[in-house]
């Protein structure tokens, strides 16, 4: 591989992402191990245990070893697929999390698949009608929606579609036991909330990118050559706006991950975000640690894919640095 080739750039990105994941794992482990070994044992076993039981638990779990050693064991076990047993449910954490992870991923994918085309279309529409009342009201509308927390958007949709109109269920609990139709309905409001939370950001950026592209000489030339409006917009202008757009979509993807945690809790959606918050409430440290690593891995994977896409769409960046 030549130095400065795209292969090196990719290897560099992968290395950086692994470093990020390592940082997330360290923060997670240190934050959840601030208590003394006896304190951890007591919080797991309850208050009414004898000194001997506490000592036995500390020895069995290896809590008497130094922190770095425990961290290495924990991380090694996790990588090998042993995510530990929850002290609250007494079940292997992995068995509880994996089905939830699948549902969280489906939810995020639906939201993304709807949000990206919609927001680009809205952005281009705004750019085309720039200066009119349509553009202005969409702009102010995007600031208003972007100013709302995800859970407020979710509650609003819930009140409208579930409580007032009664079209959709008030929570997504049907996902664990409902019929296929009920399961499908359970995805609608959570994904709609996520879509509304993302669209304003990407749409506003798409508007700016489109306006800039529309003003570029090659686009002006295409207009004056008499090409159809559709061809000018999509084949000439937006193709060149793709690279910065991919970048902004990537940043929003990372926010999507935060949004998923919130939205799952609004709709009682049985995904890993809901399990994370429930785990914090129950002091279920082992589950919280496992979910933090899984979400950290998701976060890092998304960043990596986004970075690679940015390079792909912008050849000038290949081999940068």
């Amino acid at each position: 591989m030549r130095p400065g080739s795209s292969g090196v750039a990719v290897a560099r990105q992968v290395g950086l992402m692994l470093l990020t994941l390592l940082a997330i794992s360290v923060v997670t482990f240190v934050a959840t191990n601030t208590k003394s070994p006896e304190g951890i044992a007591r919080s797991v076993l309850g208050r009414t245990v004898s000194q001997e039981q506490v000592a036995a638990y500390v020895r069995q779990q290896g809590l008497d070893r130094p922190l770095p050693q425990r961290y290495a064991t924990w991380l090694g076990d996790f990588v090998r697929g042993d995510w530990g047993v929850s002290a609250v449910t007494q079940r292997p954490v992995r068995d509880d999390i994996l089905p939830r992870l699948v549902r969280t991923l489906i939810l995020s994918m639906i939201a993304l698949a709807v949000a990206v085309p919609v927001s680009i279309a809205v952005g281009v529409y705004m750019a085309r009608s720039a200066g009119t009342w349509k553009d202005l009201s969409l702009l102010i509308g995007s600031v208003v929606v972007a100013g709302m927390p995800e859970f407020v958007i979710g509650i609003g949709l819930l009140l409208l579609f579930a409580v007032t109109l009664g079209w959709l269920p008030v929570d997504s609990a049907a996902l664990t036991f409902g019929t296929p139709v009920e399961q499908l309905k359970a995805y609608v409001l959570p994904s709609l909330t996520l879509v509304l939370a993302i669209v304003p950001y990407i749409a506003r950026f798409a508007r700016g990118a489109a306006r800039e592209a529309f003003g570029a000489p090659y686009v002006q030339a295409a207009v004056l050559r008499g090409l159809t409006r559709r061809r000018v917009i999509w084949d000439h202008a937006m193709r060149n706006a793709a690279a910065p757009l991919v970048n902004v979509i990537a940043i929003n993807l990372l926010w999507l991950l935060s949004g998923v945690i919130v939205v799952e809790n609004v709709f009682a959606f049985p995904g890993i975000g809901q399990a994370l918050v429930a785990g914090i409430g129950n002091a279920d440290t082992i589950t919280v640690q496992a979910i933090a690593l899984v979400m950290g891995a998701m976060f890092v994977a998304i960043s990596l894919i986004a970075d690679l896409l940015v390079v792909y769409f912008n050849p000038r960046l290949k081999g940068a640095r």
Partner: peptide, 19 residues
């Protein structure tokens, strides 16, 4: 740059879970 690579809500939730 290092702080910016961390996912904000996740990290804050983990810290609150711990302390």
């Amino acid at each position: 740059d290092l702080l910016l690579t961390l996912p904000p809500l996740l990290i804050v939730l983990v810290i609150i879970a711990g302390i």
